[in-house]
Computed example of a mutant assay.
Amino acid sequence: MKGIQTPEQVSLGFFNAIYVDRSIDKALQYVDEPMQQVLQHYYIASAVQRHVLNLSMTDVTLEIEEIDIDFFRKFTKDITVIVKLFGLKDGQKWIDDRTIRLHKVDNRWVIVEILPEKGNLN
């Protein structure tokens, strides 16, 4: 990793590692130590999709839906980011999102939590 990554870059990097590259090893660089242990416990990306993110998908593309950072507070150390996932779930087109919390640790952003789903409002 070169330079300081933004929370958006860290968020997309993590989800890209899990859903596109399907690599736990790549995902580990974006999370803190307790989350690294959780990811390593599941060994493979499909298990992380199922058990940690509660969302198994293929052919995924990603975008940032929302980020709750106040740009006037440069010293914020805790933010949440919502990542929108587009792809296939059980062979059907699917769009979903996941909210993650990041902390700034030693001048770099790391994912510390995947927040519980709010549930569909349909």
Rank of each mutant, 00 (worst) to 15 (best):
I82Y: 08
V105P: 02
N107H: 10
F14P: 00
D90F: 14
G91T: 06
T6Q: 05
F71W: 10
L115R: 08
Q36P: 04
L53W: 07
F75Y: 12
E113S: 14
K26I: 04
Q5E: 12
K77P: 00
V81S: 02
G87C: 03
N16I: 04
W109M: 11
Y30Q: 09
F15L: 00
Q37S: 13
F72S: 11
W94R: 09
R108Y: 12
E8V: 08
P34G: 12
G87R: 05
M57D: 07
P7D: 07
M57N: 09
R22W: 06
N107V: 08
F71D: 07
E8R: 07
V112I: 04
M1T: 13
A27R: 01
M35L: 15
V48F: 15
L121K: 13
E113V: 02
Q36R: 15
D97I: 10
G87L: 07
F15R: 00
G3D: 01
D25N: 10
M57F: 11
A47P: 06
L102F: 06
K74L: 15
V105I: 14
Q92P: 00
D59I: 01
V52H: 10
S46A: 09
D70G: 11
I69N: 14
L102D: 13
R50M: 13
I67G: 14
R98D: 04
E113I: 05
S11T: 13
L88C: 09
T99L: 05
G91H: 07
T58N: 13
S23H: 08
P7S: 07
W109E: 09
I111W: 06
K77C: 09
T76Q: 14
I64P: 05
P116W: 06
V20A: 06
D21I: 04
D97N: 13
I24L: 08
R101K: 03
L88Y: 14
H103S: 13
